[in-house]
């Protein structure tokens, strides 16, 4: 299956780092969004997006709210979501899992971790 990622982060730097990491892992197709609101717009415009990698702390709509919005939308609810964030405390991780993210990566990440989590999600879906 052809993979098309949506990279959601308000940091230009992080979007590029995630994009470069994906390209290094062999995933060439991706689109970017600067916050949750922009991400929902991109998802509504492009139905070929089949994987979301999102930050947590963002303006307008946070990564957590974006996850809840995706999960409550019948047309998007099955899209895998990987949360990539600096928030590493137990309560935050549990809150993200409660919102139904598929997996969780704590920044700073390595490409190995990113690959491992993407592979885990894809093998379970």
């Amino acid at each position: 299956m052809s993979m098309k990622f949506l990279i959601v982060d308000d940091s230009v730097t992080m979007r590029r780092i995630v994009a470069n990491s994906l390209q290094n892992l062999g995933f060439k197709e991706y689109v970017e969004a600067s916050d949750g609101k922009d991400a929902l717009l991109k998802l509504s415009e492009d139905d070929t997006i089949n994987f979301v990698i999102t930050d947590w702390n963002m303006p307008n709509i946070s990564g957590l709210e974006l996850t809840k919005a995706i999960r409550s939308d019948s047309t998007l609810s099955s899209i895998p979501i990987l949360m990539v964030t600096t928030r590493g405390v137990k309560e935050d991780i549990l809150e993200a899992l409660n919102a139904k993210v598929n997996n969780y990566v704590v920044k700073p990440f390595t490409p190995q971790i990113l690959k491992e989590k993407i592979d885990q999600i894809l093998s379970n879906s």
């Binding site: 590493g88 991780i93 700073p108 971790i113």
Partner: peptide, 28 residues
Amino acid sequence: QNSTFNPDAKYDKSSENQDIADSIVKNT
């Protein structure tokens, strides 16, 4: 509540936080 930053953000290259996350994800 909905800040655009994490006040506890830190540049920690050890795998400690990721290990905690992995363990929670696995258990949950």
